[in-house]
Design a protein around this nucleic acid. Structure first.
Length: 418
RNA sequence: GGAGAGAUGUCCGAGUGGUCGAAGGAGACGGACUCGAAAUCCGUUGUACCGCUUGCGGUACCGAGGGUUCGAAUCCCUCUCUCUCCGCCA
């Protein structure tokens, strides 16, 4: 399903955590559409015979023939529609290939750590987690949000509001310097777009909120709205790459997710995120994947946070992803005495999404080819706030603002409340 | 939200049931004329998919989706968008 510009062979879908086949369905689908086309050709031929003046009995014979054809076409098209739906449904269960260098493995424990950057801070006192910090400094109110909206919602208050906005602008400015066009996207998208990007909006395990009475969902990420932007279009080769940087709210059902590792702001139903998205030529996608990762690293190292870069294993890749890198920032309040927690994720989806969304460009021979599509987190605000609060806490209960954010916040410390 | 008008190819624009993939014009490209250019004249010029294959054949596409009919750009229904007027609103 893809062409990789990399040594070695792409990992076959067999290495993924799913199995699927629609070969048998294809064997029915192709002949059906050819037969429907042949019948339509007969109908058009029949129609063409009736153009001039005709004897009455010749005309009525042709009309009778047309009626027969009409019935056959109706039957065939009904069958074709049924087969086509099944074909597409099965097709969506087939994941992308995986990059030859992606680590082979079954689940998230089989990742490869590519590098560690920065040193986790040490504290001469017992470090608090962001939930406690947020409460003591009156920055985050989970309890009221639970009463007003439900569990896993939160109010940001006071300096936390300014901190979030500062982070947004700090990250946006970096992406602007890298040539990304800024967007604020809709927070709702049609189901067909969700499915084209590779999300399943329906079903028990879906992480997506659907909207009653509409064929639309709340987006879980701006990847959906940025990736849907050019759905159905043929792009000019000279306009590639297209680099977008989109801010949106993100809504996730997170059914069943709870416990120590999901506490506080780490896993919530609603957060804001600045997402990077690139449409490019197939031969360039690997290079741009590394570029997105480099921007993510620049954003997080610029905040003075220690992090590691993870190369996700084949079994833990989402269906559209050919390769995925995560950045995990050190979070002192996580686990017993601090652990790494995911703050960004960037995927090269090659032509997987562009095939289902039909996003193409005209190559030098005038043939339409599918573009490659990549996405990555610039900054997920809620998780960045977790990392900043926990890493920059002081013994007196105050929080030091990372110097890179001070021009945006206008203050350098969140003072302890007495 | 209410009333009315509209949506046709790169653009403008004709087309109210079969001879329409679609007149005419503009633009673009090729050619003639010219030392060259302009003007003029002649010709070519939509997209996607499929099959043989460098040309031809087939199918689909006149805002989108459904319907009527042997046959739909054309008739009917629904929706979307644009314009005008009224109402409402950040």
């Amino acid at each position: 399903m893809t062409s990789a510009s990399s040594p070695g062979s792409p990992r076959k879908p067999a290495w993924r955590s799913v199995s699927a086949s629609c070969g048998s369905c294809e064997g029915i689908h192709m002949p059906s559409s050819a037969w429907a086309e042949a019948l339509r050709a007969s109908r058009n031929e029949n129609t063409a015979k009736m153009k001039g003046k005709l004897e009455a009995d010749v005309r009525s014979a042709l009309i009778e023939e047309g009626k027969t054809l009409k019935a056959q076409i109706a039957d065939t098209e009904e069958e074709l529609k049924r087969v086509e739906e099944e074909y597409l449904r099965l097709g969506r269960t087939i994941p992308n290939y995986a990059h030859p260098d992606a680590p082979l493995g079954k689940d998230e424990s089989d990742y490869t750590i590519l590098r560690h950057v920065g040193t986790p801070p040490t504290f001469s006192f017992k470090a608090k987690d962001h939930v406690q910090l947020g409460e003591e400094l009156d920055l985050i109110d989970f309890d009221t949000a639970t009463r007003v909206s439900g569990p896993k919602f939160y109010y940001l208050k006071r300096e936390a509001v300014l901190l979030q906005m500062a982070l947004e602008r700090y990250a946006l400015d970096i992406t602007l310097k890298k040539g990304f066009t800024p967007f604020i996207t809709p927070d709702i998208a049609r189901e067909e777009i969700l499915m084209g990007i590779g999300f399943n909006p329906r079903g028990e395990e879906s992480n997506i909120y659907t909207i009653e009475g509409m064929d639309a969902c709340l987006v879980g990420t701006a990847e959906i709205t940025l990736g849907g932007y050019y759905a159905g279009q043929v792009l000019d080769k000279k306009d590639l790459p297209i680099k977008m940087s989109g801010l949106s709210h993100c809504f996730r059902r997170e059914a069943g997710a709870s416990g120590q590792y999901s506490k506080g702001l780490y896993r919530v139903h609603q957060f804001s995120k600045l997402e990077l998205f690139i449409y490019c030529l197939p031969e360039d996608s690997e290079r741009y994947h590394n570029e997105i990762l480099a921007i993510e690293e620049e954003i997080f190292s610029g905040l003075g946070l220690a992090y590691r870069v993870v190369d996700t294993c084949t079994g833990d890749l989402g269906a559209p992803a050919y390769r995925k890198f995560d950045i995990e920032a050190w979070m002192p309040g996580r686990g017993e005495s601090g652990e790494y927690g995911e703050v960004t994720s960037t995927s090269n989806c090659t032509d997987y999404q562009s095939r289902s969304l039909s996003i193409r460009y005209k190559d030098d021979d005038g043939k339409n080819q599918h573009v490659h599509m990549l996405n990555g987190t610039a900054v997920a605000l809620s998780r960045a706030i977790v990392a900043i609060l926990e890493n920059n806490q002081n013994e007196d209960g105050s929080i030091t603002i990372p110097p890179a954010l001070v021009p945006y916040t206008g203050f350098d410390t969140i003072k302890a409340r007495s």
